Simulated scan of single mutants.
Amino acid sequence: MKNILTIVVLAVTMLFGIQTVSAQQLSQDKSRPEVIAKEETAKLTEALGLNGDQGRTVFRALVAKEVGYQKNIAGKNINEAAVSAEKNKLDKQLKEAMKKTLSAEQYTKWLKMNN
Rank of each mutant, 00 (worst) to 15 (best):
residue 98 M to D: 03
residue 30 K to C: 07
residue 39 E to V: 13
residue 19 Q to Y: 10
residue 60 R to N: 15
residue 67 V to T: 12
residue 23 A to E: 15
residue 86 E to F: 07
residue 104 A to Q: 10
residue 77 N to E: 02
residue 105 E to R: 03
residue 84 S to P: 08
residue 32 R to H: 04
residue 27 S to I: 15
residue 71 K to E: 14
residue 102 L to T: 03
residue 91 D to W: 00
residue 110 W to P: 04
residue 43 K to D: 15
residue 77 N to S: 03
residue 77 N to H: 03
residue 41 T to H: 02
residue 76 K to W: 00
residue 28 Q to R: 14
residue 47 A to I: 11
residue 102 L to F: 09
residue 29 D to V: 09
residue 102 L to R: 03
residue 99 K to R: 14
residue 72 N to V: 08
residue 29 D to L: 13
residue 76 K to M: 03
residue 108 T to L: 08
residue 38 K to C: 04
residue 62 L to C: 05
residue 104 A to M: 00
residue 29 D to C: 01
residue 48 L to R: 05
residue 69 Y to H: 10
residue 24 Q to V: 13
residue 39 E to A: 15
residue 108 T to C: 03
residue 64 A to W: 00
residue 61 A to W: 05
residue 26 L to T: 15
residue 111 L to N: 12
residue 110 W to V: 00
residue 103 S to R: 03
residue 40 E to I: 14
residue 20 T to G: 13
residue 70 Q to H: 11
residue 74 A to F: 06
residue 48 L to H: 01
residue 85 A to M: 07
residue 109 K to F: 08
residue 107 Y to T: 07
residue 44 L to K: 04
residue 83 V to S: 03
residue 78 I to H: 07
residue 72 N to T: 11
residue 91 D to A: 09
residue 83 V to D: 02
residue 106 Q to D: 11
residue 49 G to M: 08
residue 19 Q to P: 04
residue 110 W to G: 05
residue 44 L to W: 07
residue 32 R to Y: 02
residue 58 V to A: 11
residue 78 I to E: 04
residue 81 A to V: 07
residue 28 Q to E: 15
residue 36 I to A: 14
residue 100 K to G: 06
residue 22 S to H: 13
residue 67 V to P: 03
residue 29 D to P: 08
residue 73 I to Y: 04
residue 33 P to E: 09
residue 40 E to S: 13
residue 108 T to M: 04
residue 32 R to V: 07
residue 86 E to Y: 09
residue 26 L to F: 12
residue 53 D to G: 09
residue 39 E to T: 13
residue 63 V to Y: 01
residue 106 Q to Y: 03
residue 66 E to M: 07
residue 49 G to I: 10
residue 80 E to R: 07
residue 39 E to Y: 05
residue 65 K to G: 07
residue 103 S to T: 15
residue 27 S to A: 14
residue 59 F to G: 08
residue 55 G to W: 01
residue 103 S to W: 02
residue 87 K to E: 08
residue 65 K to M: 14
residue 110 W to A: 12
residue 56 R to F: 10
residue 98 M to H: 06
residue 41 T to I: 06
residue 54 Q to I: 02
residue 98 M to V: 08
